[in-house]
Amino acid sequence: MARARDLVKIYGEGDAQVNALAGVSAEFRRGELTAIMGPSGSGKSTFMHCMAALDTPTSGSVEIDGVEIAGLKDKALTRLRRDRIGFVFQSFNLVPTLTAEENITLPLDIAGAKLDKDWYERIIDTVGLRARLRHKPSELSGGQQQRVACARALVSRPAIVFADEPTGNLDSQASAEILSFLRRSVDEFGQTIVMVTHEPSAAAHADRVLFLADGRIVGELLEPTAATVLEQMAAHDPAQRVS
């Protein structure tokens, strides 16, 4: 569904040069929820931004749904993001002037595409927002806002959804709701999701966890639990102590 090969991203020049990605290759399969973990500065966000066509790698290739994105112009990249990729950011996910419903259908509206009514209804029911559709974002709680964002990410049936710390700003109950929703969309709809997180409990919802450090993939964990994730984190980052 999505593949990265030898991704390198270098910021700055000379002494100030930073190798954010030092050759990352990975593959994300259909119907799989992958968590990406790593300490600050490990390159996990840069990796996700390059995968999601928000940033261009210095070298290497990214393929989304069979499309090689290297060399695509802004217009084509925009269209790719609109039609093939869904996004959930940590915060500020919604357009404040639009209602929840309008926010959800935004990618389709922008594309001028027709709404698949059945699909839409199913998503609304899954995120449980039916009663709140006519509200503006400012009238929704943080958890509800993230659920709207998740629904928006799914509505255009993207090939892949990227979630950047989707639960970073939420309390534990709201986090649990979002994570279970992501899980269900993988299980029930066969959605492919890549999620960047630093919380082991969030990563435990994934099918697989990739660990990044210093711009490289340093480990992979299948069928993770919170405990095994913590163990791995400690192994890859000696500085990180488990309290």
């Binding site: 925009t78 996910n93 357009v95 922008i110």
Partner: peptide
């Protein structure tokens, strides 16, 4: 955000 979700 709008640009990210596909506004040209």
């Amino acid at each position: 955000l709008l640009r990210a979700v596909g506004l040209s």
